[in-house]
Design a protein around this nucleic acid. Structure first.
Length: 697
DNA sequence: GGGCCATGT
DNA sequence: TAGCACATGGCCC
């Protein structure tokens, strides 16, 4: 459904004729968005119906509050933008120009990516199992919410994420079919079997979407990407009876956009040439891009007048001035038509949650009962995946649709129903009395070692890996990557790349001209041992949900933070991966996140510093630099010690598998914190130096 | 660490 | 008749 569910026509309503007030025009809602199959829809009518059905409701009032908030944000950004001096603008323009060049240099036409998107997937599956639905307007979902609608229904303006009662208003004869995930999973499995033949490492975006690297197939068989797509779609249809659409392009971001163009049951090929890409991107509405949603689009359009991707480049200076690095980088990349071409970074789940909406109530017994049910479900989900977390977040939606979250971080890891219930109740208690319509529970900050997992082999492997790490030799190993928990990504073996990348990471730090500013890096002369672990620095647009916040603006309204922002741009954190401790002083955390640069990652480090060349900064033990082996062992000791008791520290699975380390996202928040406080010796007048440990061949 | 936001299905 | 979800990642303070 992915690409089908988004798109919007809000701007169109603005240009409607002016006979009489049209209050619905200001009711910006996602439901009025157009999407594939909605071309002939009377959008104004849809918008009016949605408005009429919604106005006066608490939901509506809440939407208005949200809308007002976005407007404020836009105002703030406009003001900030207008405030920019000529000098500042000039500066940011050079920043943008430089960055564009750097991004351009990463352009890669060596791959052919195919994005497949099933057409109205749930609806199509339901029609397969009940052919009488064929040709009739139908939607999967219920009166409160629709998951997807078939193309007949879309002609009436019915679309996913629209409440069923509004859909019925738009299309009285609409047939609503309840959701049946089992069915969709089964058919999804069939499609994946086909995908597998073309790319064994294909990336499953969701049940109905996938990315395939068809470079090899295409080459081996001497056929074009378009031909592969054609054949694949035929095969999928033959084996499932379902149609799909495809996009072929040099990177995943573009491939995804392309698959939407000739939907349903069509495909679009964007040639692997710069000119083709730039032409394609130049007129492309920004909202087509995965990761640019309703809010981001509004901001870009209303603040900067950007509505096409090309305009991202024209306004590059402003974007760099007003957005965080990661956001600006992303926007510029979009303007250049760049996207990920490498196998995706492995992502580990960071949190697990569930939530339920119910009839609003302030009955406390009932609320506790809901908590109990959620705790039960969540605990069972966690056990299935062997997860144990120490942060519990309670999410509440009041009867007026106001959303609150309350979190609690524990000393210990929990996963049992009782524990979850106990702490969730505690959180809820503090909110009472309250009338709620939704409660949600979320557990994060996972422990890396799953319960029952033998710890010994783990530690061993860890240590051997760490040693290799410290000496610069990565275990390019073959160790098992552990269980793939998320169904969203299929893993790729990146073994070899990682070690290369690591070296590069280190190098690039010193090579980056932007890094030169920092004269006071406390670790500059330190012997250090890195406790492996890198976070994935790139936000993949695989399965959505990784848009960088575009509201960096709020913090930049005062000169101080502007200054800060500036130093960030100039400082050691700029653009390239870093290992500098100093960075954390200046850091906005998102400096650690880079889009579309493939391998860029930042490291988390826990370092042992040999103070004055002989004294361990962690325990004070004295070991001259000539005791190379001993030092190594000593470092290992600290590592092991730390890993054992530091529940939350590193993702041990990460460390175990060398090839996995750079692909893994670990709990970055915590480690950033740690990193900040880490060089306890940073402020000591120590004479530290680069010792032999990390120079070992 | 906590709260909240954005995205996408 | 009234009625608008769920899951996850990430940013900012």
């Amino acid at each position: 459904m992915a690409a089908e569910e988004k798109k919007k026509e809000e701007s169109e309503s603005e240009s409607a004729s002016s006979d009489g007030p049209r209050p619905w025009q200001s009711y910006h809602t996602v439901y009025t968005n157009a999407k594939a199959g909605m071309e002939g829809v009377d959008k104004e009518k849809v918008q009016r119906v949605v408005y009429e059905m919604s106005k006066g409701s608490k939901y509506f009032e809440n939407e208005e509050r949200k809308e007002a908030f976005i407007r404020q944000k836009i105002e703030r950004m406009r003001a900030r933008s207008a405030e920019l001096t000529a000098a500042e603008l000039a500066h940011y323009q050079t920043v943008a120009d430089k960055r564009m060049l750097e991004l351009e240099a990463t352009r890669d036409f060596s791959k052919v990516w195919l994005h497949v998107d099933m057409d109205a997937f749930y609806a199509a599956v339901e029609t397969l199992s009940d052919p009488s639905l064929k040709g009739k307007p139908m939607a999967v979902g219920g009166m409160s919410m629709i998951s997807t609608a078939n193309y007949e229904a879309r002609r009436y303006g019915v679309r996913a994420a629209m409440p069923g009662f509004i859909a019925r208003k738009l299309c009285p004869e609409l047939i609503l079919v309840p959701v049946d995930f089992k069915k969709y999973t089964y058919y999804s499995g069939l499609t994946r079997k086909v995908f597998q033949r073309y790319d064994p490492h294909f990336i499953a975006g969701s049940l109905d979407e996938a990315y395939l690297d068809i470079t090899e197939v295409s080459k081996e068989r001497g056929v074009s990407g378009g031909e592969v797509a054609e054949e694949l779609r035929n095969t999928v249809f033959g084996e499932t009876g379902l149609t799909c659409s495809a996009g072929v392009a040099a990177n995943r971001l573009l491939a995804k956009v392309c698959s939407d163009i000739n939907k349903p049951n069509g495909q679009f090929v964007l040639p692997n040439e710069r000119l083709a890409v730039m032409t394609f991107i130049s007129s492309l509405p920004i909202r087509k891009i995965g990761g640019i949603g309703k809010v981001t689009e509004r901001i870009l359009t209303d603040v900067f007048g950007i509505s096409t991707c090309e305009e991202m480049l024209q306004k590059g200076g402003y974007l760099c001035a007003l957005f965080s690095h990661s956001s600006a980088d992303f926007f510029l990349s979009v303007g250049l038509g760049l996207g990920a071409t490498d196998p995706p970074q492995m992502r580990l789940r960071k949190s697990i949650s569930n939530e339920r909406t119910f009839q609003a109530t302030d009955n406390e017994a009932l609320l506790y009962q809901k908590i109990d049910e959620l705790a039960e479900m969540l605990s069972s989900d966690m056990q299935k995946e062997g997860l144990h977390g120490r942060t519990l977040t309670l999410k509440l939606k009041t009867s007026s649709f106001e959303v609150r979250t309350r979190a609690l971080t524990l000393q210990n890891y929990i996963s049992s129903r009782d524990d979850i219930y106990k702490y969730a109740s505690k959180l809820l208690k503090a909110e009472l009395p309250v009338s709620l319509r939704l409660i949600g529970l979320r557990v994060s900050q996972f422990k890396e070692d799953k319960v029952g997992a033998p710890s010994d082999p783990t530690q061993k492997t860890l240590l051997s890996f760490m040693s290799a790490d410290a000496s610069g030799n990565f275990n390019k190993g073959q160790s098992s990557l552990g269980s793939e928990t998320s169904s969203t990504l299929f893993m790729n073996d990146l073994g070899v790349d990682i070690s290369v990348e690591t070296d590069e990471t280190i190098e690039s730090e010193s090579e980056n001209p932007l890094d030169r500013n920092d004269a006071s890096d406390p670790t500059r002369n330190c012997t250090w041992i890195e406790f492996a672990g890198k976070t994935e620095g790139m936000h993949e647009h695989i399965n959505g949900s990784t848009m960088d916040k575009a509201d960096a603006c709020t913090k930049e309204s005062d000169p101080k933070s502007r200054q800060l922002e500036k130093s960030n741009r100039m400082g050691p954190d700029s653009f390239l991966p870093h290992t500098s401790e100093m960075s954390s002083c200046l850091n906005q955390e998102d400096n650690n996140h880079y889009r579309l640069q493939g391998e860029t990652s930042s490291r988390h480090e826990e370092q042992i510093l040999w103070m004055n060349d002989y004294k361990c900064s962690l325990c004070g033990i004295e070991l001259p630099s000539s005791f190379v082996e001993e030092r190594q062992e000593h470092a290992d000791f600290h590592l092991a010690e730390r890993l054992q008791k530091e529940e939350s520290g590193m993702d041990s699975r990460t460390v175990i598998a060398g090839k996995r380390s750079a692909q893994t996202q670990t709990g970055s928040g915590k480690k950033h914190k740690k990193r900040k406080s880490l060089p306890s010796d940073g402020h000591l007048p120590i004479n530290v130096f680069f010792g032999k440990i990390n120079q070992k061949p």
